[in-house]
């Protein structure tokens, strides 16, 4: 398949992952090139989040391997699903975004002025610089996601992995966030791997699609995906 190429930066080979004793992901093969925009779609419980955690090394693989080329695992910016504990967490936006620079620290981790400057730059790029001193818990859902995106950008200038970043956002905020990601992909040449529920916008933004159902139903270029029966059925369901 031409979705696999020689200059891939992330390659998964026959990856299987068990979760709570059950197989959550089986036999996934995929490759991500520098500059790719890969959307992972699929139903709830189809193993999308678990696969992403496997790629990041947060969960152990039961089988197979993930190979990174010219890229270290800690150099991937991750935007996880939000946890309930974060709702009333006492932290300023600046403190949270600064924690993205932790992967540049050794055992003794103290931030430098350069780290702080980088935080301000990323906040400005995402148009939330005026929120720097605001308490995180007072922000709206869309603002929170931009802040977490800024943290992910502080962790990596090359690859972002996003786990349903638009979940729970209203349509306007969803559109804005998607435009931002598009801009990051095109302007900053950031490689993006994103889990999404929204097939229509996934097909519009991404150049590659992985359709998961524990194992991949489809992996390849978006142009090929829209010709498949899986996609046509899915779209037919949406438009009924």
């Amino acid at each position: 398949m031409d979705a696999f190429s020689a200059n891939s930066i992330i390659v998964a080979e026959d990856v299987s992952i068990t979760y709570d004793g059950r197989i959550a992901v089986s036999n996934v093969n995929l490759s991500v090139d520098a500059g790719d925009y890969l959307c992972i779609i699929g139903e709830n419980g189809s193993g999308k989040s678990t696969l992403m955690k496997g790629l990041l090394g947060i969960v152990n693989l039961a089988d197979g391997c993930v190979r990174l080329t010219c890229l270290q695992r800690s150099q991937i910016g991750y935007l996880p699903q939000r946890t309930p504990a974060q709702r009333d967490f006492p932290a300023s936006v600046f403190e949270i975004v600064l924690s993205g620079r932790l992967n540049r620290q050794g055992v003794l981790s103290f931030y430098t002025d350069e780290d702080r400057a980088q935080v301000r730059e990323n906040l400005a790029y995402l148009q939330v610089d005026e929120l720097a001193d605001e308490p995180y818990r007072n922000l709206s859902g869309g603002q929170k996601q931009r802040v977490l995106l800024a943290r992910a950008l502080c962790a990596s200038e090359r690859v972002l992995m996003l786990d349903e970043p638009v979940a729970g956002l209203d349509p306007i905020m969803t559109g804005e966030l998607q435009m931002l990601l598009d801009k990051l992909n095109k302007e900053r040449k950031l490689t993006i791997v994103m889990i999404s529920h929204d097939v229509v916008s996934a097909v519009r933004c991404a150049n590659k699609i992985l359709h998961m159902h524990k194992s991949p139903l489809f992996f390849g270029k978006t142009a090929d995906y829209v010709e498949t029966d899986i996609y046509k059925k899915l779209v037919a369901c949406i438009h009924v």
Binding site: R73, P80, Q86, M161
Partner: peptide, 10 residues
Amino acid sequence: FDESFARAIG
């Protein structure tokens, strides 16, 4: 604040 993120960045 975020154990998943902390793990991801090593």
